[in-house]
Simulated assay, not measured.
Amino acid sequence: MAHFVTLVNEELKKANDLCLATIVKRSGSAPRSSGASMLVLADGSIKGTIGGGKLEGDVQQEACRCLQEEQTKLLHFSLRGKDVSDSEMLCGGNVDVFLEPVKAADSAARDIYQAAAHLAQKGGQGLLLTPALPGPIKTQKGRKLLLALDKEPVGSLDGFPEVNSEILPKLEEYIKERPFGIHDLKLPSGQNLPCLWEAVLADPTVYLFGAGHVSLQVAKLVKMVGFKLVVMDDRKDFANRERFTQADEIWVNNYQDVLTGKDLGEDAYLVILTRGHMYDKEVLSQAIKQNAKYVGMIGSSRKRKAIYGALLDEGVSQKTLDKVYSPIGEPIKAETPEEIAVSIVAELIKVRAGG
Rank of each mutant, 00 (worst) to 15 (best):
A63T: 01
L90C: 12
P136E: 05
K151P: 00
F180M: 07
K151I: 00
P179D: 05
P136D: 02
E162Y: 08
Y174V: 14
E62P: 04
L74C: 10
D106N: 09
Q114D: 13
Q125D: 07
S85A: 15
D184T: 07
L196Y: 13
L67A: 04
K170H: 11
L127C: 05
V84P: 03
P188S: 05
L185K: 10
K176R: 15
H118T: 11
E62L: 15
S107A: 15
Q71N: 09
E166N: 07
L90N: 11
T130Q: 09
R178D: 02
S107P: 00
C66F: 09
K141H: 09
A115K: 08
A109S: 14
P169N: 04
L75Q: 11
V154W: 01
F180G: 06
A132N: 08
K141I: 05
L133W: 03
D96R: 14
L185F: 07
H76C: 05
A105C: 11
L74G: 10
Q114R: 12
A120I: 02
A148C: 09
K141A: 14
L149A: 07
Q125E: 13
K82T: 14
V102R: 04
H118P: 00
E173N: 08
L147N: 00
Y113D: 02
R178F: 13
Q68D: 09
I112P: 02
G126Q: 06
G135E: 01
K103N: 10
L146P: 02
F180V: 01
D158A: 13
H76W: 08
L67V: 09
L99M: 10
